[in-house]
Amino acid sequence: MMEDLDVQLVSTTIVNKCLVVPIQVELFDDTIIQLQSEILDKIQKEDLRGVIIDLSAINVVDSFLAGKLREIGYQTVLMGVDTILTSLKPEVAASIADMEYDLGNVIMARDQDHAFQIIDSNSKKII
């Protein structure tokens, strides 16, 4: 029952060969872990160019979430795909900087448009 709910809470879509993960709810630790493996599975199954995680609805980033995002960043890069976080709220950005959380090699974007631009320019480099 709970698992069904979680799947519904974070429904990913693939747009222009990019996995878009819009997070519309405050994440529970379980949801994040589930999401993490879902993203990695999708990279393996589909031919993806990038992962875009939209954090516009997130109000709080704790050390666990920051750590997981960092892990996702490194893991997706190992699988050949960049992870891009978009649409952070100003207060969330401020608190991440204040707490000195390290997000590793995830790329930050202003909004989804910007994220697609970054992915486009990165894929061009490879070709």
Binding site: L88, P90, A93, D98, L103, M108
Partner: peptide, 12 residues
């Protein structure tokens, strides 16, 4: 550095 880091987190 904190201000700059936070700004970068906004994708700027």
């Amino acid at each position: 550095v904190k201000v700059i880091k936070a700004t970068k987190l906004m994708g700027c």
